[in-house]
Design a protein around this nucleic acid. Structure first.
Lengths: 245, 245
DNA sequence: CCCGCGGTTCGACGATCGTCAATAACAAAG
DNA sequence: CTTTGTTATTGACGATCGTCGAACCGCGGG
């Protein structure tokens, strides 16, 4: 974590250092990296960058949770991605040198590390490994997107909501007796945006899931641990047992 | 298009040479590129690589049309992307050194240029520019995917089908009088996979579009040129004029 | 010519969805 | 505590969707 110059790597103390896109970087670059590096604390709801704004660098989530969202004409919006600690955001507008197509907003009190654009570009040019790691993050984003496209094409809205809740439970849930509990970091509107339905429909889906083992009250969610393995996967049972679906 | 060695760049004669990911490449690399380079002609329906197979290199579509599709358990499949001439495919499994997650199959008689994996990797390491161009293709794929996610979340199936037909008309259509005509390169099943509905539903959508200016008979599609600007965008008109929607 | 086969369409049914409008729950501010 | 604005829910309605079964089509092989 220390180059020959004695300057410590800015990400050295980070839990995600081994996967950092800025590691390894040749020793001579560490001082530039340290100079371009900055931390930023974000309050709940604060935006890191706005849709349409100029890129200011490469961002890495260190703590909390960031939502990447695009707003369309007409006031509607789609939540494209949740970025957890260790994930890199803003790399598209950085690499392509264009305006942000999405807005980044904190859903929890968060910390984000930034490498300012000008120096980041120099670092990328001097260290091909950095570019390779950024490309790898791009591919992760492609994989994520493809999974979502496939889910939208094959699963019902209810199944997608159930799957989303499981994902969130995995990230935010805690075991409590024989239940899994969490406090949702997302509003109903955000949940609706993530699965692509209007909020009214989401309310109905939540109500229906409530009859299938999910206990959802406001932002508190709990499910029996056993449900986790199978829920959302049972077939529709179209006409044999209408009450069960 | 000629390096100091006198070996011509394999992509030199290609219409997409200016955007080739293998250009520019330092002169010493051109001979390696030429050695690793090969062309392949694909008949209609022939597969370039199978889902789950090992990556054999980086592919670039030169002529025709390639469908990238993933098969799921249960025999269903989703058509994730159409690759037109000039587009690069197979770069994810190449860059991440993993198995293909999608199948590539020709929808038209096609020509695909391949740079074999081993040498392609050397070329990427020797030429950072190549990696940068590949990253740019990754970002294009992210953008495409995001657009599709947004479309799935905001537009109705009918609107998405109309939009898809317009995209296809732009690529395959020809003006004929005051109509735009094309021969669809896609089966009904493929169309259905692209918008994420079962084939029966697609049939209904086609039928409904038939009442809105689209003339769709088998694989032949024609629309009045004027319709192109507005179709698919009119509001549902839920209760004022049921016959019109 | 008939047969069979895969791809496509159609009809009917119940389930689900989107929309509008009204209500309820809630939190921040006064 | 009340007010106020936002967020979330509910009801009702017609439209759309997914599914099943059956019919239809084109086409190649017997």
């Amino acid at each position: 974590m220390r180059g020959d110059t004695g300057i410590p790597h800015p990400c050295g103390a980070c839990a995600f250092y081994p996967d950092s896109v800025w590691q390894p970087v040749e020793n001579g670059s560490i001082s530039m990296l340290a100079r371009a590096f900055s931390r930023k604390e974000l309050a709940n709801g604060q935006t890191l960058f706005d849709q349409g704004s100029e890129n200011r660098g490469v961002f890495c989530v260190s703590r909390g949770l960031i939502a990447l969202r695009t707003h369309h004409e007409g006031g509607t919006s789609t939540l494209l991605r949740l970025a957890y600690p260790g994930e890199v955001i803003g790399f598209r507008s950085f690499l392509e040198d264009r305006l942000h197509l999405t807005e980044a907003r904190a859903l929890l009190p968060s910390r984000v590390c930034t490498v300012a654009r000008r120096d980041a570009r120099r670092l990328v040019q001097a260290n091909p490994t950095v570019l390779a790691r950024l490309a790898s993050r791009c591919i992760s984003e492609i994989d994520r997107s493809h999974e979502r496209i496939i889910a939208a094409a094959t699963a019902s809205n209810k199944q997608r909501l159930a799957a989303l809740l499981f994902d969130l439970l995995e990230a935010h849930g805690e075991r409590e007796g024989n239940h899994l509990r969490m406090h949702l970091p997302l509003s109903r509107k955000d949940l609706a945006d993530l699965i692509g339905v209007p909020p009214e429909t989401l309310s109905r889906l939540v109500g229906r899931l409530g009859k299938e083992g999910f206990a959802i009250d406001g932002r508190n969610v709990a499910i029996p641990a056993r449900t986790a393995a199978k829920a959302g996967t049972e077939p529709p049972l179209t006409k044999t047992c209408p009450a069960a679906s």
